[in-house]
Design a protein around this nucleic acid. Structure first.
Length: 538
DNA sequence: TTAGGGTTAG
């Protein structure tokens, strides 16, 4: 009997797909030669593969689990883990959380949890945003005496970080009773980064004597997403210097660095990362492909972005959306819309970001009818409820086309409160078409809403100037002065020369030779005045 | 058993 059990166990381990797994499952339950205890052991093993491994199926695991008599702690832990790791598994309601329901069921059957139960339960609370439940799980951890377990403490740090209760997470980290490991440090660093406390994260990062690739990737990604991509690139250079067999840049590093290059418009650096990827022998996957499309697109190389897109073997919603957004950004609206049609034909479902790309493409090219179609299809065909930013895009389309009544009607129909961007889009249209009457009304509303935002005053000044009402321009300028309103952070643009990204703004930059640039501009201006140079303004 | 990656207008 033991031989048969061991043979079946080996078959389970060697299973390559669900078909084989199902076949073995039926053999186990119908076999007259296996003892009940052996059957239970084999089913537990099969359940584990089915629920956890890539070849498995959580749906089938659930069926196997339901038919198991007297499931033990191992079986419950497997199922709790499987549900906690499942992506998009249900809504945010506590009742839809299978892991928590299983935990309750397990307790009601008199089975006590062990230290493996809690990290997954806490993860479930983190990913499904059950803050209050998370705290009661924390209480259960203490009750069952597993508070000193490092896995449990680490997962609690992640839980509290995810809820914006970062101080609780930090307190937990600072007062940890278990010996802190790399995961504890990384989790805390990530917590600070996600809360926008980049310097706090950097402080911990510098304190670490040993770092792994997760540490490096976390700090690089955190700084890119926190709006400090230059420093992210500096971390990458530092990583290359300390790189060893233990810590080496991986695919995740490359995706994050590409994202930094995209934010900076650092095309040379981005191209270098692309060749580095090819040289390192790492295969490009969907995430890296999407990051490359985004990088090339944001650096102005639309053709190169499209080349990467076409070469991708598999493309998901994000890859299609990235390419659509690149087309939209550069005014290739028809190409964006055609790609959307192709995407649908390929059976890839658009998401809310895809529609932002499509609507902005329509806005940039005055494609009103197409914009209306996208907006309607989003809701009626794809069942995606328009968010406030979709309304802002649609108002932008209508206002740019001087369809002010329709734009106002759309704002009135919004199920949520229109924000400053929605009204701002309407004001932008008024500015474009010198609609003084509506512009005054909208600007007044926006100024009341955000009295310190300089943009609305400037828009109104421009509307007055276009209509020849210079007294009103003066009046608004005086008002701005009286209220002490000026542009806080001036707009800037960047250019990469010989791998160095230079930032320009109206106030100048320390690393840019503004005097020389102003001199060249002056010469050009003089030449133009003398008719020696002509520039066609697009 | 716990930690890290890609798409977003205005």
């Amino acid at each position: 009997m033991a031989n048969l059990r061991n043979a079946i166990s080996r078959f389970i381990e060697e299973c390559k797909n669900m078909k084989e797994l199902k076949k073995i499952h039926s053999q186990i339950i119908t076999s007259p030669f296996l003892l009940q205890s052996d059957k239970f052991l084999l089913l537990s093993r099969l359940l584990f593969l089915c629920a956890i491994s890539d070849l498995g199926s959580l749906g089938y695991a659930t069926v196997v689990f339901r038919f198991m008599k007297n499931p033990n702690l191992f079986v419950y832990n497997v199922m709790i883990r499987a549900y906690a790791s499942k992506i998009n598994g249900g809504g945010n309601e506590i009742c839809s959380s299978q892991s928590l329901l299983l935990y309750k069921q397990m307790l009601s059957e008199g089975i006590a949890p062990n230290c493996l139960t809690f990290p997954f339960l806490v993860k479930e609370c983190t990913t499904r945003l059950h803050g209050r439940t998370g705290r009661s799980i924390h209480a259960q951890v203490i009750r069952y005496g597993f508070y000193n377990d490092v896995f449990v403490q680490n997962s609690l740090i992640v839980l509290y970080s995810a809820y914006g209760t970062l101080r609780s997470a930090r307190k937990l980290f600072d007062e940890m009773t278990a010996t802190r490991d790399l995961v504890s440090w990384n989790s805390m660093i990530i917590g600070h980064l996600r809360s926008g406390e980049l310097d706090e994260a950097l402080g911990l990062f510098r304190k670490m004597s040993t770092k792994n690739i997760v540490t490096w990737n976390s700090i690089i990604t955190g700084f890119v997403q926190g709006g400090r991509p230059r420093e992210a690139l500096a971390f990458f250079r530092e990583l290359q210097l300390v790189s060893s067999d233990m810590v080496r840049p991986d695919k995740i590093t490359i995706a994050s660095v590409l994202s930094a290059c995209a934010s900076l418009g650092a095309i040379d650096h981005g191209k270098w990362v692309h060749s580095y990827l090819k040289m390192s022998g790492q295969e490009s996957d969907m995430v890296i492909g999407t990051a490359l499309i985004d990088m090339y697109g944001k650096c102005g190389c639309v053709e190169k972005a499209y080349e990467v897109f076409k070469e991708m073997q598999k493309k998901d919603t994000l890859a299609w959306t990235a390419m659509i957004s690149v087309f939209a950004l550069h005014g290739f609206s028809k190409e964006a819309l055609n790609l959307y049609e192709e995407m649908k034909k390929e059976g890839v479902r658009p998401n809310h970001v895809t529609f932002v790309g499509l609507l902005s493409a329509c806005a940039h090219s005055g494609l009103v009818a197409e914009g209306r179609c996208c907006f309607v299809a989003m809701k009626q065909v794809h069942l995606i409820e328009p968010e406030v930013y979709h309304y802002a895009c649609m108002v932008d389309i209508l206002s740019r086309a001087a369809l002010f009544e329709e734009a106002e009607e759309l704002i009135r129909s919004m199920p949520m409160k229109p924000d400053a961007f929605v009204w701002g889009a309407l004001l932008g249209g008024c500015q474009m078409h010198a609609n003084v009457e509506l512009g005054e009304r909208v600007a007044q509303y926006l100024v009341d809403l955000e009295p310190l935002n300089h943009a609305f005053y400037v828009n109104l000044c421009d509307i007055y100037a276009k209509s020849g009402r210079f007294e009103d321009v003066k009046r608004i300028r005086t008002l701005m002065k009286e209220r002490g309103i000026k542009k806080e952070v001036p707009g800037c643009s960047m250019i990469e020369i010989d791998g160095v990204v230079h930032e320009f703004s109206v106030r100048g930059s320390p690393d840019v030779q503004m005097d020389k640039i102003i001199g060249v501009l002056k010469d050009l201006n003089d030449d133009m005045k003398m008719g020696r140079v002509s520039i066609i303004l697009m």
